[in-house]
Design a protein around this nucleic acid. Structure first.
Lengths: 248, 248
DNA sequence: AGTAAATTGTATTCAACATACAAAAAATTG
DNA sequence: CAATTTTTTGTATGTTGAATACAATTTACT
């Protein structure tokens, strides 16, 4: 029995004399090295700087990131648990390859996760959140009209996140993030190329309408279809560029 | 100032010249230590040996598992990425606590993932797999009749896995494993206590029937409900035992 | 093949940080 | 004003964070 005192007394040294907090440039000095390494690595993978199938040589990346092998290793293990890299015993870990079947599976799963979310969101979104969504939709359409790709994408992503949040299920959100990290990498391919925006905008309109009408099934079905459309687009592009770089 | 070469210190690993596969049940000598450590840790967490909220003191666990801190640390990072433990900067990592809202979310998500799987499985399962499922069902019912708890559970789990596999989507399977690890822990509570087996058996029968009839919606709906029933059972038990051990 | 180089796996060491305990200074009260 | 309580400060200790050294394995080279 480890009985502890019921009364939380103020103990120990109250506060450090505040080491001036290193004002300015440092935002997150409280983040561990492995955390930062993981972020940077993920970014490298998503942007294709580390292409699918590329070996992760520890010494090399240590040089690049300016850290030692220990935190890098931990970061790699985390990314492996997230499915972004593959570890093989006694061999270099590799960036998880993006073959066709993988992409198919991924977007099928992602689409259905968003379907679930939309179904719950249609029932659980507040009126305030709905109007916020509508505003996002308008913003997105404006950016579309202006041809601002980056802004369009950002708002698009925000809308999807808002729907997920509206489902009121933290686990679902986690799951979505988990899949999204991988999908983002695939989507990075299709960044400027597929001009499917017109349809995409219309799909978003329909989804929003279904949410506002509180029709779970419709909203879910439409959102799933929307995501899978994106998937097939990426897939086509992947097949087109599969002629060149390929590592079995 | 890392220079200190007067005295030749013992570095490297003079301690365990031959671990000789230390603890008895060794299955995969080809697996790295971090891999095994992760497995053992997960097992400890699932079985409640490391209860929710318990601090993970590295030195302690190193002693227990007979390894050094480096692989243990890697294992902890992996489990953290899987959501089984929480890391806090410069503090002991903790086993992820199991509060009510967490359990609710978890089983809601898990139920819906299985719903998706069942929908696809109803369309994609082969006749062979279906008959295999039916055989499992009969086996499970037999174990139920004999009161063999462990065997019943094992077959039950196998059925769920078979349905997932029948969906023909590797990502979905991964996602399921991801959630299942956590659900298993929650389920471990309810192991001998809730005698909901009768209903559970019947639910399984209905699900199987829907799969055989190739009715995706029905199969999905039933399976989701089945999983969520389990969830509410666990939830009730959790609430009942929340009176005792609680750490804010 | 066989041997050497490179790379991963693991253990240990050192440093940074946080907490707990103890002591001293300040404030309050008889 | 002395005694006690409260607040602050100092120090010790344990734990995590990160880097390096050594061992084992794989890959490259001839």
């Amino acid at each position: 029995m480890t009985e502890q005192s019921d009364i939380p007394r103020k103990r120990g040294r109250p506060r450090k004399p505040r080491p001036a907090d290193a004002a300015g440039t440092e935002r997150l000095p409280r983040a561990g090295l492995h955390e930062r390494a993981a972020r940077q690595l993920r970014s490298m993978i998503v942007t294709g700087k580390l292409p699918g199938g590329a070996p992760i040589v520890e010494a090399e990346l240590c040089e690049v990131l300016g850290i030692s092998r220990t935190p890098l290793r931990e970061a790699v293990k985390m990314l492996a648990a997230q499915g972004l890299v593959e570890l093989r015993p006694n061999r270099s870990a590799r960036v998880a390859p993006m073959d066709a079947s993988h992409v198919t599976d991924l977007f099928e799963a992602l689409g259905n996760v968003e379907r679930i979310a939309a179904e719950y969101a249609a029932l659980r979104l507040t009126a305030t959140e709905l109007s916020s969504l509508r505003q996002m939709q308008e913003t997105m359409e404006r950016y579309y009209g202006e041809g601002d790709l980056a802004a369009y994408f950002a708002v698009n992503q925000a809308i999807h996140s808002a729907i997920l949040a509206g489902a009121r299920n933290a686990t679902l959100v986690e799951m979505h993030r988990w899949l999204f990290a991988r999908a983002e990498r695939a989507r990075y391919f299709a960044l400027g190329r597929h001009a499917r925006w017109v349809e995409s905008i219309q799909e978003h309109r329909d989804i929003l309408a279904a949410l506002e009408a509180r029709e779970p099934e419709t909203a879910g079905r439409l959102l799933a279809a929307h995501v899978m459309h994106t998937g097939t687009g990426v897939l086509a592009l992947l097949a087109a560029s599969a002629v060149a770089g390929d590592a079995a």
